[in-house]
């Protein structure tokens, strides 16, 4: 294959895998922010926690990778529910400043707690054989793990789409994101809906955190390092829009990966600049609805 084309395909592929990760982690944030308007800067902490749960399940209990990912989803989702009820609930009607501060507090505690329990050195995990090495897709071979990540991302988008379009709870969530007052008026228990959505979003983030270990690594500051990216995905995609989060995550993933290949020092600047410009032109994001 032509070397330029070869590099371009590699970039696209890695970017896609990275974008899928961003999507899996961010989509929950987008929905919860769209639903309750809660500015949750602690979302990355749930991803970080998921990473450590995955590591612990594998290294301490010998659970294989895939079940460990599932375990991270379930455990973090379960733990997120009481946190939501105790800490977040009182502030739904508060201003965004209070929400920002509260969730920054939660991130700090999470990072400190993780450092205390797991230390600050990045842990390593043993991947199953089928996820190491390369897979041959006919025209080119690709790293197996990234192929797998893309597959999981695709499965997630399909599952979320089916869940939102075809189930009653999905319909309720869509209705509530669209117009909370109206949803409440027709008897949807928005508060309860939010616990479920919050847990689902946290669980997905946790799974994303587990998947991310092999790609971007894991250490306690993960909770805040990538926060800006998650927020950009949410803001650029448009609050509460799954499609928006998907498009924004993939585009961001590809641009960032390309930037790192082509211009290792300067790439990030253009991402932020592009995000700012887009928000200036479309304050509600690509697929968001104007909030009044």
């Amino acid at each position: 294959m032509n070397p330029v084309l070869n590099a371009a395909v590699s970039i696209l592929f890695d970017g896609l895998a990275y974008g899928m990760l961003l999507f899996i982690i961010s989509v929950g944030l987008s929905i919860t922010m769209g639903l309750m308007g809660f500015v949750n800067l602690a979302h990355g902490a749930f991803a970080m926690a998921g990473g450590y749960v995955t590591v612990s399940l594998m290294n301490l209990l010998g659970v294989p990778f895939l079940p460990a990912l599932g375990g991270a989803f379930v455990i973090v989702a379960a733990v997120s529910m009481p946190i939501e009820r105790l800490i977040y609930l009182p502030l739904y009607r508060a201003g965004e400043l209070d929400q920002v501060l509260l969730s920054i507090g939660v991130v700090f505690m999470a990072i400190a707690g993780a450092t205390f329990v797991w230390g600050s050195t990045p842990p390593s995990i043993r991947m199953p054989d089928f996820l190491t090495g390369q897979v041959d897709l006919g025209f080119k071979t690709f790293p197996a793990y990234r192929t797998f990540t893309i597959g999981v991302g695709m499965a997630m988008i399909l599952a979320l789409w089916l869940g939102f379009e075809r189930t009653i709870i999905g319909a309720k969530i869509r209705a509530a994101v669209d117009n909370r007052a109206m949803a409440q008026a027709v008897g949807i228990d928005v508060d309860r809906l939010f616990v479920v959505t919050f847990a689902l979003g946290s669980g997905l983030a946790a799974m994303g955190g587990g998947l991310a270990i092999e790609i971007v690594g894991l250490s306690p500051p993960f909770a805040i390092q990538y926060l800006v990216f998650f927020l950009i995905v949410v803001a650029v995609g448009g609050l509460g829009s799954i499609r928006g989060a998907f498009v924004a995550a993939i585009v961001l993933g590809i641009i960032d990966t390309a930037g790192k290949y082509l211009w290792p020092d300067g790439g990030a600047f253009f991402i932020y600049a592009a995000a700012v410009l887009l928000l200036l032109v479309k304050p509600w994001g690509l697929f968001g609805r104007e909030q009044t």
């Binding site: 209070d98 501060l101 991130v107 400190a112």
Partner: peptide
């Protein structure tokens, strides 16, 4: 450092919830 960071986080949560 962990104690400090945890403390800052906790104080922040408490301030927002109880001592605005």
């Amino acid at each position: 450092p962990e104690f400090w960071e945890f403390g800052v986080g906790l104080v922040l949560v408490l301030v927002v919830l109880f001592f605005r």
